[in-house]
Amino acid sequence: MTLPRTNEHERFERGLRALSEIDGHAGEKVVAQLADIAPDFARYLIEFPFGDIYSRPGLDLRSREIATIAALAALGNAAPQLKVHIEAGLNVGLSRDEIVEILIQMAVYAGFPAALNGLFAAKEVFAARGLSGQERAA
Rank of each mutant, 00 (worst) to 15 (best):
F120K: 12
R14S: 07
V92K: 15
N91T: 13
E13H: 13
L131Q: 04
P80E: 11
E135H: 05
A127W: 02
V125L: 05
L61T: 12
I46R: 13
I66Q: 05
G76A: 02
D23C: 14
R62E: 12
R96T: 12
R129L: 02
F112H: 00
E21W: 10
D52T: 01
A137Q: 10
L119A: 07
G24Q: 07
Q81P: 10
L19S: 13
D40C: 04
A110G: 09
L72Y: 04
F48M: 08
T68K: 03
A38F: 05
L75R: 10
H25L: 07
A115Y: 03
Q105K: 04
I37Y: 08
N117E: 06
L103T: 09
V108D: 01
F126N: 07
N91I: 13
D23N: 14
V30Q: 10
A121R: 06
H85S: 10
L19R: 15
A26L: 08
R62I: 12
K123A: 12
L61A: 12
G27K: 13
F120V: 08
L94V: 15
A127L: 09
A26T: 12
N77Q: 06
A79C: 01
I69C: 05
A137F: 12
P39N: 09
A32C: 12
L16F: 11
I66H: 03
P49D: 03
A26I: 11
S132Q: 06
A107I: 01
P80S: 11
G15I: 07
A42E: 06
K123Y: 02
Q134A: 11
F112E: 00
F41P: 03
A114W: 00
T2D: 04
L119K: 03
I53F: 00
D52Q: 01
A88P: 13
G93D: 15
I66R: 02
P4H: 01
A32R: 15
R136G: 10
L90N: 11
A128Q: 15
S95F: 12
P4R: 01
A67R: 05
P49L: 05
L82P: 05
L34P: 08
